[in-house]
């Protein structure tokens, strides 16, 4: 088990190298380099720049060196905790990330939990009451949830809240708690504001998980051992919980690996629509402003979030399911 953990953690390293490489390419793609874009922006604002200053800036960011050295410089700076400076928001990138990433994590984790609980309950219900009205309704809503883009759902909920209840959904805090220190009231306010984002982000994944759990459980329930148990008079609830549910849950828990990237994706766009103080809207702003250092770092942290999340879920799964072979 210990060697499995070590190997699994070591596997992260090549992944991180690949991620950073891809992100570096994204940063490098737009025409013109970082400094000249910065200079152009300054000049637009009427600031006079000197040739020597520009050269100094270029040297500082290693722009006079070949691309692969620039990449190494960039990685080395990040390892030292220097993620560069954002000209779009005029702050160090790291402070922007530190401010916004926690909310992204909160929403992602909350969505994951929501998605599990709902999928578990609805999946079990629909499998045990196959072809009942509830099953049909759940299947219908599930398909709809899978097909509706996150932002559409966010828009529709916003519109309903606004036109029916007359208030604007958005943000993670009510105005009075916006800059307040952390109190019980602020936490409750946050939880209240989490409901809509979590529903919006979680719907598609939940719908998928329900389908998986329902299919697995139906497979399991039709197996001879369950029929034998029924013939021997084992009560329905016990018949369900003793084995079939446990077996059906295993593939279900392993779906976290692919659900987490989806959640982070969904969270990004939903946050834009609902103007949440998470990474998403900042990423969009950075991209629109072509502030590629900020954008690159944000994508890097989002990727890191999914990689670490997948790692944690893999380790949990290995701990829960003894059938996983550690020696591979």
């Amino acid at each position: 088990m210990a060697s499995y953990i070590v190997r699994r953690v070591l596997m992260m390293i090549p992944l991180l190298v690949l991620v950073s490489g891809v992100i570096f390419i994204v940063i490098q793609l737009p025409p013109g380099d970082y400094v000249s874009r910065h200079v152009a922006r300054l000049e637009m604002e009427g600031v006079v720049t000197h040739e020597a200053e520009i050269e100094a800036l270029k040297r500082r960011y290693g722009l006079d060196r070949p691309v692969h050295e620039q990449y190494l410089l960039w990685v080395r700076a990040m390892l030292r905790g220097d993620f560069g400076y954002s000209f779009a928001v005029r702050r160090p990138v790291l402070s922007v990330v530190a401010e916004r990433l926690p909310y992204s994590i909160i929403i992602s984790v909350a969505t994951l939990l929501f998605s599990w609980v709902v999928a578990f309950l609805v999946g079990t219900y629909t499998a045990t009451r196959q072809y009942s009205p509830g099953d049909y309704i759940a299947s219908f809503l599930g398909f709809l949830g899978l097909a509706t883009p996150n932002f559409m759902l966010a828009l529709i909920l916003m519109w309903i809240m606004y036109s029916v209840f007359g208030f604007t959904v958005g943000g993670l805090f009510s105005p009075e708690y916006q800059d307040a220190p952390w109190t019980m009231g602020r936490v409750l306010d946050l939880l209240k504001h989490l409901i809509i984002p979590v529903i919006v982000v979680g719907t598609a994944g939940t719908a998928g998980s329900i389908r998986i759990l329902r299919a697995n459980l139906l497979d399991e329930l039709n197996k001879p051992y369950v029929i034998t148990a029924e013939a021997k008079g084992v009560p329905p609830f016990r018949r369900l919980c003793k084995y079939p549910l446990r077996v059906a849950l295993i593939p279900f828990t392993s779906t976290v690996g692919w659900e987490l990237p989806n959640i982070v994706s969904g969270e990004t766009i939903t946050a834009v629509v609902l103007s949440l103080p998470t990474v998403g809207p900042m990423l969009l702003r950075a991209l629109v402003d072509q502030d590629m250092f900020l954008a690159g770092s944000l994508i890097l942290f989002l990727s890191l979030l999914t990689l670490v999340g997948t790692l944690v879920s893999d380790l949990l799964l290995a701990w829960l399911d003894p059938r996983i072979r550690y020696d591979r």
Partner: peptide, 24 residues
Amino acid sequence: QRIIEFIRSVPTLPLWMGLSAALP
């Protein structure tokens, strides 16, 4: 297989956003 695993473990939308914002 490793490359595919990598691509699938990265959140899609932010990557798409980064790439399409980088288009001239």
